[in-house]
Structures are given as C-alpha cells and as structure tokens.
Design a protein around this nucleic acid. Structure first.
Lengths: 117, 117
DNA sequence: TTGACACATTCCCATATGGGCATATATTGC
DNA sequence: GCAATATATGCCCATATGGGAATGTGTCAA
C-alpha cells in the first residue's frame, strides 16, 4: 500500500519541512507564490505544488489578485494536530516532573554530603 | 529526492495513523509487541517495524522482560510538535473569534427582526 | 493581437514506504 | 540440547513522493 498520500491528512501534509515553513511564513499574512518561492529558495513550481497540498487539506486559502494568487493561512486546520498532541501533554509533564524530582534529590544528597564533611 | 524518511523527524514518524494509535495505546502504560499487534489488528512484523520507527525518533522506549519486549511511551518526544503547533494557536483562536462574532451578529439581527414584527 | 508576467500542471526519475511473507534471533521451559 | 514462544529483520512489490524541466493557462498592458 505504501505511504499515505500527503493530501490524505493534515499530519501528512505537515510532515514536509518546507510546508511547515510556508505555514510559518503565512502566519505573517497573505503572500504570493513567487514571494514564498523566493523566501523558501525554491523554484516556483515546487512552491505551487506544496501550496496545492496545503490547500487540499484545508490549511491555506487562495484569493486571486490580478495576475497573482495570494495564499493565506487557515489556522483552524491545525487544530486536529493540537488536539491530538494535547492529549499527551500530561505525559511529558510527568516525565519532566520525574526529572525535576530526581535533580532535586541529587541536590539534597549533595547538601547532605557537604554537611557531613 | 522523494519524501523524507519516516525516521527523519517526529513529524514524519507521527504522520502514520497506526503509529499514532500505538502512542495512544502506550499512553495507558507499557505494552508488549504482540499486545499492540492484536489491538491494532496488524501482524506482528508490522507492529515491530512501526515500533522501530517510533524508537528511532525517540517517541518510545523499550525494556526487555523475559522473552517479550515492553514498549513505553516517551511523552517528551512529542513536545516539538506541541511547541510548533502552539505558535499557531492564536491564529485559529482569531478565526474562531471572528466566527463567533459573526454568529453573534446574526443572532442580534435575528432578535432585531423579531422585534420589528 | 501580442508580449510579459504569475501561476499551475505535466512528465521524468530516484527514493522510501508499508504490508505480506519467510526467516533469523533471543529467551524460556523441559 | 531441543521445542516453543516472542520479537526482529530481510526481501518483495505497488505506490506516492519531491525536485527538475518544460509547457499550459490566465491576466494585464500597450
């Protein structure tokens, strides 16, 4: 079956670093295709393709403006990722808490050792 | 160059739905490979492969327990995704706010219309 | 109409994939 | 040692990819 299509899912669409870059750039406001291509140091066709993927999964919107097309971020499209990853928030906090507790324990031992000297 | 390796990145590793399922299952605690394979309704080798990917990107830890290997979630591995998507939180809140304002505006109009009747 | 510009689409190719399957590699109990 | 169980790994294949390059489509201005 091979890997899922990049357009099958927001997760797959966002797996590509350049597409994440595009979203970051668009968070500053609308941009034209050439604009984005220049910033990404990518040729125009690739920029168009990436934008096409992002559009198919609903992460960006397009608007015609004369002979250029302005792409805008659709922030809501990222919510599924946020919601999913948020369900694990407690998990990594717990790991950090354990690390924190461990470090505190080390420091305590250190103080005790110093005291014994 | 083709698509990036699934092991190149947490984003790529998590793009596969079954791997997300695995992480969800592991958030309930350690599981053996067969255990996971059964829950995912996947054959054992595929489960092992997926777990291998997750391990390579640091999303899970393994621990030998007799003749089985228990996999555990490493929540901190998901933090990069959380951090990235969090930078867009304002974006979709704004969209939602606009939607909210729009709906409120509609309701107001509706009330006014009723009043006029 | 014609040319210039912005963008989209198509074809090519090297590459990695995930599943099926068979097989190697532990580890345990006898 | 040997069989049984749990897991990992290797090979196969169909499929989708992202970049390069060329070409199609649309819009403007003269």
């Amino acid at each position: 079956m091979a890997r899922l299509a990049t357009t099958s899912d927001v997760f797959n669409a966002v797996a590509e670093p350049r597409r994440r870059q595009i979203l970051t750039l668009l968070s500053g406001g609308e941009r034209s295709v050439n604009d984005l291509a220049r910033q990404l140091r990518v040729r125009q066709p690739q920029a168009s393709k990436h934008l096409g993927v992002l559009r198919q999964v609903g992460l960006v919107r397009v608007r015609g403006a004369g002979q250029q097309r302005l792409y805008a971020l659709n922030g809501q499209g990222l919510k599924p990722i946020h919601d999913w990853v948020k369900t694990f928030e407690r998990q990594w906090n717990e790991s950090l808490d354990r690390l924190d507790a461990y470090l505190k324990e080390l420091q305590k031992k250190e103080r005790d050792d110093v005291r014994k000297r």
